Simulated scan of single mutants.
Amino acid sequence: MAKDFKRSYKFAVKTSVYLTLFLTVLSAGFLLIAGVFTWALLIVYAISCFVFSFLIIQYRLEVFIYTKIKKIFEHVRLLSASSVKPGQVTTDMATLSREVEKFAEGKKMEIEALKMRDSYRKEFMGNISHELKTPLFTVQGYILTLLDGAMKDKTVRKKYLSRAAKGVERLIYIVNDLDMITRLETGELRLKKENFDVIEVVQNVFDLLEMKAAKKNITLIFDTDYEPVWVRADREKIQQVLTNLLVNSIKYGKHDGTTEVIIENFSKKRVVVRVTDNGEGIEKVHLPRLFERFYRVDKSGSRKEGGSGLGLAIVKHLIEAHKEKIFVESVPGLGSEFSFTLKKAKKPGGVTAETRVAQA
Rank of each mutant, 00 (worst) to 15 (best):
V202W: 02
V315W: 03
E354G: 03
L23S: 15
T90P: 06
V168N: 09
P288Y: 05
P288I: 08
Y173G: 01
R289G: 08
K237D: 09
Q239N: 12
D277M: 05
V156C: 00
I111Q: 15
E131S: 09
K152G: 04
F30V: 15
V275H: 02
L287P: 02
M1K: 04
R157D: 10
R60Q: 15
L342Y: 07
L42I: 04
K347F: 09
G301P: 12
F54L: 08
K14H: 09
I319R: 03
L147H: 06
K108M: 05
E329A: 13
Y295A: 00
C49Y: 04
L208H: 09
I69K: 00
T352H: 06
L189N: 04
M109E: 14
L144C: 03
A313S: 15
D153S: 10
V168M: 15
F22P: 10
V17F: 11
G87H: 13
T259E: 13
A353G: 12
S336F: 00
D298V: 04
K71Q: 01
L184I: 07
E283A: 13
K325I: 01
G301A: 15
F340N: 00
Q203Y: 02
T224D: 06
V202Q: 04
A12T: 02
K158T: 13
T219A: 12
E110Y: 09
R235N: 02
D92E: 07
Y226P: 01
V51P: 09
S308T: 14
V17R: 05
T186D: 13
E74A: 02
V63G: 00
E99I: 03
C49F: 06
S80A: 13
D4L: 08
E110I: 08
V84F: 02
K284C: 00
T24N: 08
T91E: 03
D4Y: 05
E283F: 06
K115L: 12
G307D: 05
A321Q: 14
K212Y: 11
A81F: 00
E194G: 02
L191F: 12
E123W: 11
A2F: 14
G333E: 09
R303S: 05
M151H: 08
F11Q: 11
L79A: 06
L312K: 06
